[in-house]
């Protein structure tokens, strides 16, 4: 699905290297210069990719590798936040105990349902909004910045506003329901209402974020693709489906990967939804996610070892999802090829 780059292996100055050489007629200064340039050029082509990716890996190695290794090491130990360097070896116990940990499975389930009901609508809406923003608009910059306003709003303000909206006794939604004669809903205490409410917060917060990502990609779609599609009589909708979407495929893939990771680590929104402010996700843990459970174990219960194990399980879970994804696309490609071959044969 991707066009992979093909660096040019034959630079124009290459012929310099093939300049005739005679032992007693030293190469002209020009030729030597060209040769030097050529060698330099080849080295440039060979090594510059490494130079380009190096800063990321250098900074990552300097500041993220140690925390990663520490977390991995801590997951095999009993260790408390009161003394983070004082570890007691427990082997895989922090992992095996998760099998019997009801709270873990509960949060895993919540993470999954919340992930689905918040990620799918969010990405669809973002795609639509990006398409609208990609029109010629008056005040385009204003709309773009406004899209990002939810992401920029401080958590303290968002918390207060959503408490006002979803409050049981004095919330705005229940007030509105009351005016049409519907009984108030206790948004926080029922599992599904709570998850619905949280997913609206997630959608509110992140749709604009993804919208801008799509918008950037749309800016790069070649105009003549639209022109030729229009010449073929394609409607705006058909252009969107047949020109915009295919051109956005790498970016859509990107948002799906990032949103999946984000959904697995979902943390801030359920935390701010809890009126008490705690990480337990309600009295019945009805909206505790893996991210919150990890936070509760690490920062409230101070069990760094257990929290680290949860973190690594979340990581492995994502790797698993990636592998399954890869396998599915592999098989689909293969069967498609098989079908094509079969068609050709017949």
């Amino acid at each position: 699905m991707t066009t992979t780059g093909s660096p040019v292996s034959a630079p124009p100055t290459h012929q310099g290297g093939a300049a005739p050489r005679h032992r007693n007629a030293p190469p002209s200064r020009e030729a030597r210069r060209r040769e030097r340039r050529s060698r330099w050029y080849q080295r440039d082509v060979k090594w510059s990719p490494y130079a380009f990716v190096a800063p990321f890996f250098v900074f990552f190695g300097a500041f993220s590798l140690f925390p990663l290794l520490y977390t991995g090491w801590a997951s095999l130990h009993k260790v408390s936040l009161t003394a983070p360097t004082d570890m007691e070896w427990v082997g895989l116990r922090n992992f095996t105990r998760l099998f019997e940990d009801d709270f873990f499975w509960n949060s895993l389930g919540n993470t999954f349902t919340l992930g689905v009901i918040s990620t799918v609508p969010q990405l669809m809406m973002a795609l639509g909004l990006a398409h609208l923003l990609n029109y010629k608009l008056r005040g385009a910059t204003f709309f773009r910045v406004a899209m990002l306003a939810p992401y920029a709003t401080s958590v303290a303000a968002a918390t207060l506003v959503f408490v006002m909206i979803f409050g049981r006794d004095y919330g705005m939604i229940n007030w509105a329901l009351g005016t049409v004669g519907i009984d108030p809903v206790d948004w926080h205490n029922d599992k599904w209402t709570a998850q619905f409410a949280i997913s609206t917060i997630v959608i509110w917060r992140w749709t604009g974020y993804n919208t801008l990502i799509y918008l950037a990609a749309m800016q790069a779609v070649p105009k003549d693709l639209y022109e030729s599609a229009a010449l073929d009589g394609a409607s705006r909708w058909q252009q969107f489906v047949h020109v915009t979407i295919p051109s956005l495929r790498p970016t859509i893939l990107f948002t799906i990967v990032v949103s999946t990771i984000g959904a697995t680590q979902l943390f801030g929104e359920p935390l701010l939804f809890n009126p008490g402010g705690g990480p337990n996700g309600g009295p019945d843990r009805q909206y505790q996610t893996l991210g919150l459970y990890l936070y509760e174990q690490g920062w409230t219960n101070l069990h760094l070892g257990r929290a680290s194990a949860i973190a690594w399980v979340m990581f492995l879970l994502l790797v698993l999802i990636a592998l399954v994804n890869w396998a599915i696309s592999y098989w689909m490609k293969k069967s498609e090829l098989g079908r094509k071959a079969a068609r050709r044969r017949s």
């Binding site: 009993k78 940990d101 709270f103 206790d186 019945d284 509760e296 219960n301 257990r306």
Partner: peptide, 27 residues
């Protein structure tokens, strides 16, 4: 909170509390 907001019986509420406390204490 389970008793108060979800109408759970006090016995079940206590059981839920004990379960949560034990999990929180177990390093």
């Amino acid at each position: 909170l389970q008793i108060e907001q979800k109408g759970v019986s006090p016995d079940d509420g206590w059981k839920a509390a004990v379960k949560a406390v034990d999990n929180a204490l177990d390093e």
